[in-house]
Design a protein around this nucleic acid. Sequence first.
DNA 1: AAAATTTAAGATATCGATTAAGACGTATTC
DNA 2: GAATACGTCTTAATCGATATCTTAAATTTT
Lengths: 357, 357
Amino acid sequence: MQQLESNGVVQVSRTKKLNLKQVAEELGVSTATVSNAFNRPDQLSAKLRERILLEAAELGYHGPNLAARTLRRGESDVIGVMLLDSLTYSLSDPVANQLLQGIAEVLVERNKHMLLLSSRIEAGQQRGAESLPDGFILYGAIDQHSFDFILKTGKPVIVVDSEYKETASVNIDNQNGAFRIAEYAIHDENEKVAILGLRLINTDRVCRLTEADLAQESQEVSQARLAGYQMAAEQKNCHIPAASMWHIPINDAELAEIAAREALTVNPRPTVLLCMSDIIALAAIRVARELNIRVPEELSITGFDDIPESARSEPPITTVCQQSIEKGRMAARLLLDGKAKEHLVLETRLVVRGSCR
Amino acid sequence: MQQLESNGVVQVSRTKKLNLKQVAEELGVSTATVSNAFNRPDQLSAKLRERILLEAAELGYHGPNLAARTLRRGESDVIGVMLLDSLTYSLSDPVANQLLQGIAEVLVERNKHMLLLSSRIEAGQQRGAESLPDGFILYGAIDQHSFDFILKTGKPVIVVDSEYKETASVNIDNQNGAFRIAEYAIHDENEKVAILGLRLINTDRVCRLTEADLAQESQEVSQARLAGYQMAAEQKNCHIPAASMWHIPINDAELAEIAAREALTVNPRPTVLLCMSDIIALAAIRVARELNIRVPEELSITGFDDIPESARSEPPITTVCQQSIEKGRMAARLLLDGKAKEHLVLETRLVVRGSCR
DNA sequence: AAAATTTAAGATATCGATTAAGACGTATTC
DNA sequence: GAATACGTCTTAATCGATATCTTAAATTTT
């Protein structure tokens, strides 16, 4: 249909896309040979291969169709990255972003592709793309339902910032990081310590905690950080009551400002404000400025994450570097190297800057 | 192999993944019916459909394989998003990020998936995933080679922040936006105006421009913004010589600081600093503080983009809102609605904050 | 009640590629 | 010089799902 014979020369319309089989016919070789030209250079002579590649390109053929190739080989060279909550939210979060950067770096290096998935499935939406990827990287405390779904694909899964016995994982020692920064920030038993926590309880609103809340199970990362803070405080003979803790549901600057405003207007005012993310710490600094509280003279503020912005704020933030980019790289490497059983725990680093006395 | 018959009951090992055909056999229906159960509810009775869906799930079958489905249907429900430069860099750029957020929002709404691609192909790397997506969104001034490659797939393409006659596009009126902010920032002919420009010439290093550089063709977005600045300056009887312009190769805080440091230490010192991105403006503010130059009293600084950080800096940045998230949404909608010929130009908004007199 | 129409489910060719096995001629070995 | 190995290319089965075309049954129409 798309080829018309005339005086021995076979012509192909350039408008219609052609497939490997048609290319093979055009060049007078078998499909196997064309396929090999693209995938297994050792299976044919260099000369023929070169000719095929060249002429295929001229015909407008740009290499094997991924769907067909995937179907046949059972491998797509695509890696699925599943982010917590909605994609839109995750993409706005600097930590998730750094993770993606690290993942992207390794995937590009290895000629793999990245498919973004979100764990949150809205009503009327279906899963569908999960059968394509060769493996998955899950970020954060994915809900059990999504996790099971992914797990049942039988493909390798690496979890970041969470841990399940069934899969490999990349984590940091949250408790230790929190302990060290709290230990650094809290000088003695006279300090009034407040905590701006991330996802401490299961509520969508900013709120001040009660003792009852503390008994509840919360997200593991937050729980670990909280435990680290408390351990350091106790070591300095400070006690941090639940009423000095605020819950912030997502890592969002505005919500963090609301919490910070509450925390910094209680009486007596805190002297140390431990923030579970840099976004929160940055918000706290803005609120402190607004309230004419000098940082760090009157108030020490600590962050967590070490996002790029933290180094550039005024004052720059004393924080815990959790190497998010590196976590992404490690996760991607574990996955691609088939180390689907390891549980990595990366070191955190205390980054001392100007926001603490 | 994976099913063993015993006393009339057919059992399927739960460990091995099964396909639509096997599911059909298990349930004693045809493959067409199972397929219809998943894709075309109107083609079979509700009762049977429900039974199939239920039992399939129990057998551990999670719906049609994407590769096979794509191969057969010729549609993957995957959209390719190609970012400028390396993925790693793009993911760290707040503007690209907002764009992705907007795209993600619409794709999720419509049950589509997002495949991240980068335009930069390193040595030894191949393209390969380009055959999968049903369409593409290209961000920025993609190099001609990559552009042609994508175009030749014959699939719909939407370009953002660039324009080609062959494809639809979503842009903002860069020149107008730049004109308005410069008009606002430049008070009279006594101002000394300097420009911190993004990708003004084709060099990887920060550098001060010469008149010869101005004659050269540069990237369209930058060129438009520059033209807007110049038009506003001339209207106020100011002339901005090339020597008052700096080229910054990528939208990076550190490079921007280098340029800002140079620009703010020339004599006489500028009174207005027009920055082609908010990242640059934020860097300029830090450098100004470092040099004890009061902003805005002694120096007006303007940005471009309106990234979230700009509203929160001290002083907050007067900038041009380019609605990056909305651009992403529009691009995705154009693509999914098959409007592959339109050239949208979104309005910019002058956002007056504290960084200008 | 016979004919016409609608509804429900099955049979099968097909999408585009990969790869194991095989064919064929040439080079190497003893 | 026969046997073996090697390099190069071809044949053909296969991956998993979809959609067209049938067939059979149920329902409506006249």
